[in-house]
Design a protein around this nucleic acid. Structure first.
Lengths: 228, 228
DNA sequence: CGCTAGTGTCACACGGTTGTCACAAAACCT
DNA sequence: AGGTTTTGTGACAACCGTGTGACACTAGCG
């Protein structure tokens, strides 16, 4: 399936040029003029890569990049920053804000494509969508399904993300705060104890299938998912 | 040990509110009215985080933030900027001047605390995460687990920290006071003999696996962890 | 408009952990 | 040996962290 590249650029001419090149290279091109539009596209289409001009009308690209990095749902999307001048200061800021790569205008289409492919290759294993198996459980992110021994397990969205995180990060203790960061996202402000409640709901959902004891409490530290 | 938060705010009412929330969250609150006061506090107390209003009487907060970033001694102290209006321009200026995060008045206490915790977490020194092996024991800090010959050993939080310290500081005698400092922390005041009790509990937990004699008593001096 | 599923928060109960003590045991000294 | 100092050990109360049920609120939907 074609990778989706989101182009965030307010100058129509350059946006057009970028889109042309991107499609020429066999990718699917999405477009946005500003930060708001970008968020809409991200929510709707979940792009595989974002081409981001750091000079945007209201929000600067750097701020948007930081926001993207701060949210659990978007932090894994790679970003390539675009800037007019090759000032070192910009470059450093861009990379520090969480961009994966960086290209200065004017750029050659060949260079741009090379960088896009390089970044996509680096992020190739889209862990987010891969089936996960651990502790006798099967989790299919794309289908939003979990099963154990052929039996389906019904989970709410939050429990699902929580379990997904645990299954991909087994044998390690995570504090409530870390779980909030990873599962809820940094932008959300909820009580730490909320984690407890969701742990309980998740345990309750797993219990009927003899999948008890998978999520262990480590008193004073947090929780741990253990395959045994 | 409680983190120290320096509040730089000229409006008494808001300063009071901030201090209340900060203390409520279990942090130590320092206060300053202006840039000069802030510098004094920073020199004297070395805060872990600065809450900085960007509208200050003489110097603006942004200038102060830039000065903080320019000085090697203070450049690593995270800064959260406070501003009255959520203008994007301010936001950009604030972040570019070196602030780590940004919050607009009026703010909810919950959001404020969440941001403080997030920033502190981001800047927290990464604690020892490497697996340790000594005396036939395996200790995994990340998983919060100890095992000997494949068998798991259940330990309480304090015993775990104590053993971790011993395993990373084997073949050396530590006094009760030193152990209290290293394992309990400097701020805590407990009886020296408490160490004895925890040593005993640790020994009791290791004994069933023939791991006896690992922790030796050095009469008049303290205890030693020895691999033999 | 009511209904439902999902979520965040709270109050309370419960059990584990912890620090301290009193006393037993051991080591040291004269 | 007797006396003194230091450490081991069992018990216990207080406290803290976690489990749990209930409830209010929201968004989505019929």
């Amino acid at each position: 399936m074609k990778a989706k590249v989101l182009i965030v650029e307010d100058e129509p001419a350059i946006q057009e040029l970028l889109a042309f090149n991107v499609m020429q290279a066999g990718f699917h091109a999405l477009r946005a003029d500003d930060a708001d539009g970008a968020w809409q596209q991200i929510r709707a289409a979940k792009p595989d890569l974002i081409l981001l001009d750091w000079m945007l009308p209201n929000t600067s690209g750097i701020v948007l990049a930081k926001q993207l990095r701060a949210d659990a749902a978007t932090k894994d999307i790679p970003i390539i920053m675009l800037t007019a001048r090759g000032e070192e200061r910009d470059k450093i800021q861009g990379l520090e804000s969480g961009a994966d790569d960086y290209i200065t205008k004017p750029f050659s289409p060949r260079e741009l494509m090379a960088r896009i492919r390089a970044v996509l290759r680096r992020h190739a294993p889209q862990l987010q969508d891969e089936a996960v198996s651990a502790g006798g459980l099967e989790l299919l992110p794309a289908a939003h399904r979990v099963s154990a021994g052929g039996k389906n397990i019904e989970l709410g969205p939050t429990e699902f993300r929580l379990l997904h995180f645990f299954m991909t990060h087994a044998e390690r203790v995570y504090s409530r705060v870390q779980l909030l960061d990873q599962v809820w996202g940094t932008q959300v402000f909820v009580e730490e104890r909320t984690v407890d409640v969701h742990i309980r709901r998740l345990r309750a959902a797993l219990e009927p299938l003899d999948k008890d004891g998978l999520i262990q409490t480590v008193r004073g530290s947090g929780y741990r998912f253990s395959a045994n």
